[in-house]
């Protein structure tokens, strides 16, 4: 019971920090919108072309936006010593990691899900794909936060951490990208969406079990 409370307090503190920093935390969603808006300039305004590539473009932009925001997940706490205190708190470090990932998803993943349908409209995406897009992002963005947390923990204290993080994390994002886009494409072309969402759910469950544990191990060796 007290562990549960301590978990939500840790989530609460990270949310409080994110809100205090204002714009800082919402740069991810701003980046997401900008990255998607660039595509019509790149490939031309033809509605058919935009509609065809819309799911892929939205997903790739979501991937990059999530990754960019991950760099700060542990970095500031590591630099100012808060991470040491978190590691020495009675709450298991695995739970603290889970709390920080939850807060990260609430401040970056959730806004992406909200912004995605608007962007889908801008890209002329077929209306049949909207529900699948939101459902796939709802399962996929927590996965991005979880997988990315491992990378964010591993690069603590490294030289050129940001570039390194993308090299570590982007290959691991590929399955999420494949199934996320496949779900939306299936909905647009009238195929079954469920199998893709099921795979995403399976990946999410596995990540929920494994990631806090691996990330805590990575943080411990970073603090050593």
């Amino acid at each position: 019971m007290t562990a549960m409370k301590a978990f939500w307090r840790t989530v609460g503190r990270d949310l409080q920090l994110a809100l205090r920093q204002g714009m800082d935390s919402f740069t991810a969603v701003v980046f997401f919108v900008l990255a998607v808006v660039l595509f019509p300039f790149g490939v031309g305004p033809e509605p058919a072309v935009l509609a065809r590539i819309a799911p892929g473009v939205i997903w790739v932009a979501a991937l990059l936006a999530s990754m960019l925001s991950l760099e700060r997940l542990f970095q500031l706490d590591y630099e100012d010593g808060s991470l040491e205190l978190l590691a020495l708190a009675p709450l298991p470090l695995e739970a603290a990691v889970g709390a920080k990932i939850t807060a990260h998803w609430l401040t970056t993943g959730l806004p992406l899900i909200v912004a995605a349908p608007v962007l889908a409209v801008l890209l002329q995406m077929d209306a049949a794909g909207f529900v699948a897009l939101v459902a796939a992002l709802a399962l996929g963005t927590p996965l991005l936060s979880l997988i990315g947390a491992i990378g964010a923990a591993l690069v603590l204290g490294a030289r050129r951490g940001g570039v390194l993080l993308s090299l570590l994390v982007l290959p691991l994002y590929i399955p999420v990208l494949i199934f996320g886009v496949a779900a939306v494409d299936a909905a647009v072309f009238g195929f079954a969406v469920r199998p893709h969402l099921m795979v995403l759910s399976g990946l999410l469950l596995a990540a929920l079990v494994l990631v806090p544990w691996v990330t805590a191990a990575a943080l411990r060796q970073a603090l050593e």
Binding site: Q16, D80, L85
Partner: peptide, 15 residues
């Protein structure tokens, strides 16, 4: 059972 005060103050400027 322990309190550790290290070199870093763990103070968040926003709070």
């Amino acid at each position: 059972r322990l309190h550790y005060v290290g070199h870093l103050d763990a103070v968040k400027p926003a709070l």
